[in-house]
């Protein structure tokens, strides 16, 4: 009833931040909000694995001999998880190694938007969440969009260059797992009545499908950038 698979993906992203610092002697505390997006949609983790499919069928009839049978099959799983954007709120604390050099760490919460894509698209459902991109002949459809939240932390160094600062930051986010549940579009009761080959016929169908996807993710980032203090900037622009 289970299987494994693996893959990897790296990409490039742009990060913009705003924040506020308080300096106490050699220490700094502050709050920062990061926003990033995967501009080129190139951070797409493909998850390959196997699946197990079990089925059973029972036929009851007042005319033919009742019977039953079961099936067991294995197959391949092929999903992609594409990260689109992230917003993080971080509290940070730093220490001035020199008056112009700061090392700091941060801790906070992040929320990210993902597209979950079923590359097989074997299930028809009420939304695009289960419809794949048709890579293997499946029905084309929109990916399943969901958000994941998680704890994030950073470790970084920042250097003042006289009016602007440069920094190198390592950031990790461990997203909490989330269940994405899809219900089949034909769930419910349907009935058909008519004449078929001169015989009155009534067909009643009860159908139910539930597709639960347990999704989790984590990211590691290494960012390099520049910081512009707003006080300095405003003062410089002041006539």
């Amino acid at each position: 009833m289970s299987g494994t698979g693996d893959g990897r993906d790296n990409g490039i992203e742009a990060v913009f931040s705003v924040g506020y610092n308080f300096v106490f002697s050699s220490w700094l505390i502050g709050a920062q909000m990061d926003a990033s997006w995967n501009r080129n949609k190139d951070v797409v983790t493909r998850m390959l694995g196997t699946n197990t499919n079990t089925g059973s069928q029972v036929v009851n009839s007042n005319v033919i001999v009742p019977g039953s049978h079961s099936t067991l099959a294995t197959g391949v799983i092929d999903f992609s998880l594409q990260k689109n954007w992230t917003v993080s709120e971080l509290a940070r604390i730093g220490y001035f190694v020199t008056p112009k050099t700061l090392v700091y760490g941060g801790l906070g919460w992040s929320v990210s938007g993902f597209d979950l894509i079923n590359n097989f698209g074997f299930v028809t459902s009420t939304s695009g969440c289960a419809a794949g991109a048709g890579a293997y002949g499946g029905a084309a459809g929109a990916p399943c969009t969901c958000t994941l939240t998680g704890l994030g932390w950073t470790a970084a160094g920042e250097q003042d260059f006289g009016g602007w600062r440069g920094f190198l930051q390592f950031k990790s986010i461990n997203y909490r797992a989330k269940d994405v549940t899809i219900l089949g579009q034909n769930n419910g009761v349907s009935s058909r009545t008519g004449i078929d080959t001169f015989v009155p016929i009534t067909v009643t169908t009860v159908q139910g499908m539930t597709d639960v996807r347990h999704v989790s993710a984590s990211t590691l980032e290494l960012n390099a950038g520049i910081t512009i203090p707003l006080g300095v900037a405003f003062n410089r622009w002041r006539p």
């Binding site: 742009a14 931040s17 705003v18 506020y20 993710a217 390099a224």
Partner: peptide, 25 residues
């Protein structure tokens, strides 16, 4: 200049890990 508000911009490398466990009934 460390004290107060600031804005920053960066470019970075990102590596993403992901898990999925699907159960269809």
């Amino acid at each position: 200049a460390w004290d107060g508000a600031y804005v920053s911009g960066a470019l970075g490398l990102i590596r993403q890990h992901a898990d999925i466990n699907q159960n269809v009934s």
